[in-house]
């Protein structure tokens, strides 16, 4: 479970995140949606423990900056940053050793195969395209068998096969009880499996909806998004 309570992130006087509070339960996929500059990536980075913030964030009951939380948290950054001089397989080895994983090889092989990197195991990070680098990030994050995963724009740069595999992985993770937060603009790509959506505007959560309520109202995710963001812009004018 991911529990965010009164998360505020300031850059000088500017509030990138303004008092965000939400919970993502075990086996739930939450989508952080919002226009550019809404504060989605900042929120994800705060939850990943990469930024300083005010408020509290817990990963399965542990403070997000604790060792316990780090051990079970997977993070896929928006901009992939592989090690230029390590091969694809060495990335797996590095994560396994740094996180003190045991018997990781089978899982690593499976991930690498599903992301179609199995014939590129000995390719260096610098030799890979942006999309493939993104696939390495996904493999690294999932190798640790996380209990909570944060995806920051995961579909950007991926080819159709990788998008299909990632969607399938997300569904599997959901069935395994893993809490997932996805920050994305590509609402149609999460339409099949989202459980909860937080629509952000100017650093705040403008609306929070659960799938069943949206479906009961006859709306879809995209319509909901435009209804809320455009209404909000009009109200501010």
């Amino acid at each position: 479970m991911i529990n965010v309570s009164h998360l505020t992130k300031k850059y000088g006087k500017f509030k990138a995140n303004d008092n965000l509070s939400f919970t993502v339960k075990d086996g739930e996929i939450a989508v952080l949606a919002g226009p550019n500059g809404a504060g989605k990536s900042t929120a994800i980075k705060c939850i990943a423990g990469l930024l300083r913030f005010d408020g509290e964030i817990e990963i399965c009951g542990h403070n997000n900056k604790s060792m316990e939380a780090k051990q079970i948290l997977g993070y896929i950054p928006e901009i992939p940053a592989p090690f230029e001089l390590l091969t694809v397989w060495e990335h797996m080895e590095f994560i396994a050793r740094a996180y003190k994983l045991e018997n990781w090889e089978d899982k690593a092989n499976e991930l690498v195969k599903r992301m179609e990197l199995d014939n590129k195991k000995n390719k260096l990070g610098k030799e890979l395209s942006k999309g493939m680098q993104q696939k390495i990030s996904i493999c690294c994050a999932l190798l640790i068998s996380p209990k909570a995963v944060l995806f920051d724009e995961p579909f950007v740069g991926l080819d159709p096969h990788a998008i299909k595999e990632l969607k399938s992985l997300l569904t599997e993770m959901k069935s395994q009880g893993i809490s997932i937060i996805i920050s994305t603009h590509m609402l149609e790509s999460v339409d099949e499996f989202w459980d909860k959506v937080f629509i952000m505007m100017d650093g705040k959560i403008e609306a929070e909806r659960e799938r069943r309520f949206v479906e009961e109202s006859g709306e879809n995710l995209e319509e909901l998004f435009f209804n809320i963001t455009e209404k909000s812009v009009t109200a501010r004018k």
Partner: peptide
């Protein structure tokens, strides 16, 4: 590094457990 060709015949970090994996990774790099 640019387009410099790098020899990757010897693969694997080989050592490391926890934080010191970073050191062995640097040796490999």
């Amino acid at each position: 590094l640019g387009s410099r060709k790098i020899n990757v015949s010897n693969t694997g970090i080989g050592k490391g457990h926890g934080a010191n994996t970073i050191f062995y990774k640097h040796l490999k790099e």
